[in-house]
Simulated scan of single mutants.
Amino acid sequence: MTVEPLRVMVMEDDLIHAQRLTAEVRECGHVVVGPFADVHEAIQIAGSVQAAILDVAARTEGCFWVADTLRHSDVPFVFLTDAGPGAIPRRFKGHRTYPRHRHAAPLLDDLLGQRRVGIPEDDDAIQTIVVQMMQQSRRVMPDASSAERLVEATLQRAVAERSVRDGSAEVGPWLLHLLDQEYRMRGRSHLH
């Protein structure tokens, strides 16, 4: 089976490791975007890649900001660290972590598998639903802050109306419907 090359972002602040990892990704037939040591540059291109390998540097939390951006863009990623599982925040529980000196081939196999399978979705899992709400809100609002305010207002309304909700309706579609209503009725109020 022939695999189409992925555009893989590499975030690594150690020049020697970055060069080695970049060469290995290319040897496996994929396109390297980066490598990046700067968090801001990595965040700017995070939505334009198909996968990412992020080094967890002990002295900075920057790779986790990039990971948040990738997660919101549904881009699969893996972490590299020698610091152990405690170095990864709990919000990334379930994301794969590899030793820093591991060859890129298993990482790329993992990323390809994540792309094929996708992140398993449980329609009633609140995290999945909130991510869907944020994605929908970002499509209609002009900036991230107003999108967050729209979602927050929708969730507050949902809590207030939970007793009148039709128990047979699924939570996800109901919340997305409330988000749409909130946008149509009070979208402008969330701009500031």
Rank of each mutant, 00 (worst) to 15 (best):
I119F: 10
A87V: 11
R71M: 13
R115F: 09
V130K: 06
A52C: 04
M141F: 04
V151K: 01
I53M: 00
V75G: 02
R91T: 06
A46M: 05
Y98D: 06
A57R: 15
V75E: 04
A87P: 15
T154R: 06
V25H: 06
L150Y: 14
A58Q: 13
Q136I: 08
P106R: 07
Q132L: 15
E148M: 12
G62S: 03
V32E: 00
G47T: 01
S137H: 09
S145N: 09
E41H: 10
L21C: 08
R149E: 10
T154Y: 04
Q136P: 02
H72S: 08
V66S: 13
I129T: 08
V78L: 10
L70N: 01
L70Q: 01
Q136G: 01
R26A: 06
Y98H: 12
E27L: 00
S146T: 10
A125C: 12
I126Q: 10
G113S: 12
L112H: 09
V130L: 13
P89K: 09
V56P: 12
D109R: 14
A105L: 12
S146L: 06
P106D: 07
L80F: 06
R90C: 14
R149P: 06
R59F: 13
H103G: 08
D109Q: 15
V49R: 00
T154P: 04
S73H: 15
L21A: 06
G84L: 12
V130R: 10
R20Y: 01
G47Y: 03
G29Y: 05
V117E: 11
E27M: 00
R26Q: 07
I119Y: 07
R90Y: 09
V32P: 00
I53W: 00
S145V: 11
D74P: 01
M141P: 01
A147Q: 07
A153T: 02
R20P: 00
A125N: 13
I16F: 02
A18M: 05
D38F: 05
V66C: 15
E27D: 02
G118I: 04
V78F: 08
G86E: 14
I43F: 08
H17S: 07
R71Q: 14
H103D: 13
W65Q: 11
V32I: 05
M141L: 03
P99M: 02
F77Q: 07
L112W: 03
G34Q: 07
G113N: 12
R96E: 03
V32Q: 01
I16T: 05
F64M: 15
V78R: 02
A58R: 13
Q135F: 11
Q132E: 15
I119T: 10
I43L: 12
D122T: 06
R102Y: 06
D109H: 13
